[in-house]
């Protein structure tokens, strides 16, 4: 499958010959399956590479700590990569607008306790970890295309290394807007690993799928379908 990511995924020389603009355009124009095109590469690597030299990120090439190396060796140093798509019966503009205010995200993202928008670019995230704990990090918007795409990545040195994008594409005919979320959480090894591993419970795919579904419910019906709080099932 010749996807835009497989283009991005080519050797360094070819990559350099693509302009940042073209690379983003290919993500926005979008194939159906983003992660499949990524294969072994990290989403963060791809996103930050195409975000260009404007931001310096602690990438895969940086020196690894001893714990990371041990984690690598025993194979627990795995990142969580999730790709989910849902079609929502609303215009791309309405959906983009709601999502773009990151402080709205905890309304439908269960793993996020709060987001505080610091400025146009930076936001502070607090996520629920097991046993009442929280994990926090700062993230930057690394690309923002009105009504089409928002991409973000945690800043260098953040305790939780994550990145992702949400893409809004009009669906055929009267079918609304296809909303694709691609997210990656990297397991750094060491202290916070266990906490992050549990951030999404046992099934990160399902959790993020559910969060996207709640976004759909909220946008289409004005509320999130629930039985939480009913005395009996």
């Amino acid at each position: 499958m010749e996807t835009e990511i497989s283009k991005i995924n080519q050797p360094e020389q070819t990559q350099e010959s693509l302009s940042d603009h073209e690379r983003w355009a290919s993500i926005i124009g979008g194939s159906a399956m983003v992660l499949m095109g990524l294969q072994q590469r990290s989403l963060r690597g791809v996103l930050t590479a195409i975000a260009g030299g404007s931001l310096a990120y602690h990438g895969a090439t940086a020196d690894k700590s001893l714990t990371d190396k041990v984690a690598d060796a025993v194979g627990i140093n795995k990142s969580i990569k999730v790709e989910k798509t849902v079609t929502i019966n609303k215009s791309a503009a309405e959906l983009y607008e709601y999502w773009h205010n990151f402080e709205n995200l905890p309304t439908f993202m269960k793993h996020v306790r709060s987001v505080q928008v610091i400025d146009m670019r930076r936001s502070h995230w607090v996520a629920n970890a097991p046993m009442g704990q929280t994990v926090e990090w700062d993230a930057d918007i690394i690309n923002d295309q009105p009504n089409q795409l928002i991409a973000w990545a945690s800043i260098e040195g953040a305790s939780v290394d994550n990145s992702g994008f949400v893409r809004f594409t009009p669906a055929p005919d009267d079918r609304g807007t296809e909303v694709k979320v691609v997210m990656e959480y990297d397991m750094p090894g060491g202290m916070v690993t266990a906490a992050i591993a549990k951030l999404f419970g046992e099934e990160p795919e399902q959790q993020i799928g559910d969060e996207l579904r709640r976004f759909k419910q909220l946008m289409e019906t004005g509320e999130i379908a629930t039985t939480e709080g009913q005395p009996r099932g």
């Binding site: 019966n89 799928g209 759909k216 379908a225 939480e228």
Partner: peptide, 27 residues
């Protein structure tokens, strides 16, 4: 049924996209 989703709009009310909080189980 929610009355707002693609299925409801097509009168396929028992297929409503939005009314099952445990949709992941059915999926």
């Amino acid at each position: 049924a929610c009355g707002n989703c693609f299925s409801c709009n097509r009168n396929l009310w028992s297929l409503c996209d939005n009314s099952n909080p445990n949709a992941f189980m059915a999926e």
